[in-house]
Structures are given as C-alpha cells and as structure tokens.
Design a protein around this nucleic acid. Structure first.
Length: 116
DNA sequence: GGTGTGACCAGCT
DNA sequence: AAGCTGGCCACAC
C-alpha cells in the first residue's frame, strides 16, 4: 500500500505536542530536549524539540521554555531568550540554582514528562 | 519538489 | 579523556 505507513505522529502539530509537555513542567523543575523527544518517540530527534521551542518564542504565552535545557543541564538556549541571563534569572526565580549557565541540581530537578 | 537548517544526543576515533 | 561526525524529523524558502 502506498499509505506511507507510520505509527504515531498523527499529531496536529509537532509544536503543539512540545508546547503541551513544556507547559506541564512544574515550576522549579527542568527537563531536557531528549526527554521530550523521547516522550514523543523522537528520541533521536531532540533537535526538533529545541527548534520547536524556537517557534514557541512566538507563542511564549505560557510556555516556560526556560525550563528546558540540554541533557547536560546547560542553558544552551539562553541565547534565544532575547538576552543572556534571562533564562538563568527565570530559573533562579523559581529556585533553580545555576552556575556558569549550568544547572547545579540538574539531576535532582530533572522532571520527566512521564511523571506528569 | 528538493534542499537546508535547527535551543540535540549518542557513538566513534 | 576529549573532540568530532552523523543522524534524526519537521518546517521554511
């Protein structure tokens, strides 16, 4: 059949999926792109998660993109917040300790989409 | 319709 | 041990 078989991924918009997960991140918690990608089944395509967040910039209405960091806990996307310390301040404002653009208790504050 | 890009991750040398 | 490359999927031009 030429129906282009593909299991999941019938989502209306990949972005909405990412936004939905990011919005579920509790305050004071953080997650990684790979975790979101893995939750969506794109464990190998974490890049799109970050890229999706880039588009979220236009819909930042309630998308705490600052709570999303890379797997090392580094604020890789801080540069995309329009500033350099915006992301860090936002996280610190929630009680997340950051040093050198890197979350200290990243492993401890790490939040998994499955937990929600 | 094809090509390029992207806030990554994992594996290999 | 550290650095580099490829891969991966979705969206814009």
């Amino acid at each position: 059949m030429m129906m282009d078989q593909f299991p999941v991924k019938n989502s209306p918009s990949f972005f909405e999926n990412v936004y939905d997960i990011v919005r579920r991140i509790p305050p004071g918690r953080i997650t990684s792109y790979g975790a979101i990608a893995g939750y969506l089944g794109l464990c190998k395509s974490a890049r799109m998660v970050g890229w999706a967040l880039n588009a979220a910039h236009s819909a930042i209405d309630g998308i705490p993109a600052h709570r999303v960091v890379n797997r090392t806990g580094a604020l890789t996307g801080k540069h995309h917040f329009g500033g350099s310390v915006i992301m860090q301040q936002l996280l610190e404002n929630e009680g997340v300790e950051i040093e050198n653009d890197q979350v200290k208790n990243f492993r401890q504050l790490f939040w998994d989409p499955r937990e929600g």
